[in-house]
Design a binder for these strands. Sequence first.
DNA 1: TCTGGGGTCCTAGGACCC
DNA 2: TCTGGGGTCCTAGGACCC
Length: 420
Amino acid sequence: MYALVDCNNFYASCERVFQPALEGRPVIVLSNNDGCVVARSQEAKDVGIAMGEPFFKCRERIRRHRIAVRSSNYTLYEDMSRRVVQTIMRFIPDVEIYSIDEVFLDLDPLVGRDLEALCRTTRATVRQWTGIPVSVGIAPTKTLAKLANRIAKKTPGTDGVYWFPAGEAEQARVLKSVAIEDVWGIGRRWSARLHALGVRTALDLSRMPASEVRRGFNIVAMHTALELRGVPCQELEDDPQLRQTLVRSRSFGRMVSSWPELSEAIASHAIRAAEKLRHENARAGHLSVFVHTNRFREDLPQYGGSGSCELLPATSTTPVILSKALEIGQRLWRSGFQYKKAGVMLSEITRGPVQAGLFEQRDEQRDDRLMGTMDRINRKMGSGTLRPAASSFKPQRWAMAQDHRSPRYTTRWDELPRTR
DNA sequence: TCTGGGGTCCTAGGACCC
DNA sequence: TCTGGGGTCCTAGGACCC
């Protein structure tokens, strides 16, 4: 048996924990750069603010409905997420952290106990200790736990916890109530194709022959269909694997065209990517860099490109990654374009011993000591205290717009919440 | 004027091997 | 008229997720 715990309107709920005056009011949270709406309180959903809607297109409705607007504050959300998981683990220790606001739980080791009561206690405690409301779905497969969670959220009588029923007739009734596009793993494209085949609900998909799903779509879709029938195809992944890629990229607050400005943006992404890599105790064997213009500005000339190189030996040393990223960036840069976005991607990520390069001159142990020292100083004195000169020292034109950010209440001494 | 960022997995096809 | 059989690796593109 699996449970899925999903935080309700997570980012909006985080904002409310520290500003209770927002309770009962519509709240939205914007993406990086204050570009799009990425989270909405129930009240904001009710007045028709869509997920992913560009901010500038809903300004009028925001004013009319007195919607509270926040820039995204990932420092706060990540810390709140950690607190929610820790609280859950007090009750149910076998967890898979699926996303910033979702956790799968393995209930099998607790069999014999009153699982529903346990889930209700967990839910109430998370609310009490962190302030975050969550919903819980319980079912024999992950796909059904997702579906059950959705029902827990939408059905007032469930009080936030829903157990997928055991009886066949009852199961069919529930599956029939879920539209195919609301099934986990079925996106827009596949929904359209399934509709064309007359498959409109979760029940319809569960009744399709597995071989037909396999042939018409792929093995992932087949697993989804089987899981809807109660056949588990995905296990709990409680041992986090090493990531495969690490990307740092941003749209610019304003477009830039000069190489010095573009290079600063690339430099800051390379620096942050290398830091993140070291934080995960890993190294990368491949680096790529991309830049592109604003695709929405059809009146302007468009250009985009990417380039890459091997990192041999695999490394997490900032100066190495930075200088190679800038070399690639310089090759990509063309004058006469207005750039909107740049990014750096690290891949072939490994941990542990690395294959040395035959002709490499660098002293890697010295590099590691230097980076370790730099990271420790930055941890103690504040991020960016020590940094390469290639990054900028002043707020720049390309810096991210973030006009509505709340304080980092839980991670900065000078931003602690105050009672008055 | 303003349009996010970060991930995973699968498949098909081409290049190459013996 | 008929033109082998069995593999691996890489990449691009397409799907999905939050």
